[in-house]
Nucleic acid binder design. Structure first.
Lengths: 104, 104
DNA sequence: AGAATCTACAACCATTAGGTTGTAGGTAAT
DNA sequence: ATTACCTACAACCTAATGGTTGTAGATTCT
């Protein structure tokens, strides 16, 4: 998932597909690379669950998947929580030191 | 930055360095890979600004950098905002359709 | 001083990623 | 029916990743 987000082109595609639905060709025209390359990027995003495709006649419509992005967000938030836990522990230590100078 | 987060070992290192400070050897012992490999992972994390090193005698102390993680979080939040904007626009369209049946 | 420890860095290797071109199969338009 | 368009997929190339080992520079311990 983070790997899928680690490429600028893919993040841009994600933004576009979150703003509105596009088929692969429409997306591909906006980037200075081949259709196949964009197709691969979309495949990576799809593999990560950040995007999903839906057939509509001869075209394939790509739309962004917020659920997965929220998941990524939650993961990062957890990491921050770890940090916060550390801060709290430092707070405890300070409180303990205040509370007599030695460990109980 | 996302690339740095895209590797499981690096995310684990990040957690450990957010929980508390460790030198590189201490970290390295916890993973089934060579010291040099861990050293490289730390370098990647450092390059992404997710971690910073501080010399202390012969050892190098690694500590997590929350600032950068918040930055990552903010980026994801922005993407969600894009999505939210789309929802809002759909809302407007529905309101317009309600408001007379044709575009003004 | 000498041994042990922690780190930095180079050289190398296998695999993956990001890109290309080319071919082929459906669907839509004329 | 034939042409144009959208997509899927394979083959190939180059550069970057994640890993290895080996060598060397500082710093600490005995």
């Amino acid at each position: 998932m983070f790997h899928a987000l680690a490429d600028a082109t893919r993040r841009d595609i994600l933004v576009r597909t979150l703003e509105g639905e596009h088929n692969v060709s429409t997306l591909a025209r906006r980037y200075p690379m081949s259709f196949a390359a964009v197709q691969k990027h979309v495949a990576v995003l799809e593999g990560a669950g950040l995007v999903s495709k839906q057939r509509k006649g001869r075209e394939q419509i790509v739309s962004g998947n917020v659920e997965t992005m929220r998941k990524a967000n939650r993961l990062l938030a957890q990491l921050e929580t770890v940090w916060q836990g550390r801060i709290d522990r430092i707070g405890e230590v300070l409180a303990d030191e205040h509370n007599g100078g030695k460990n109980p």
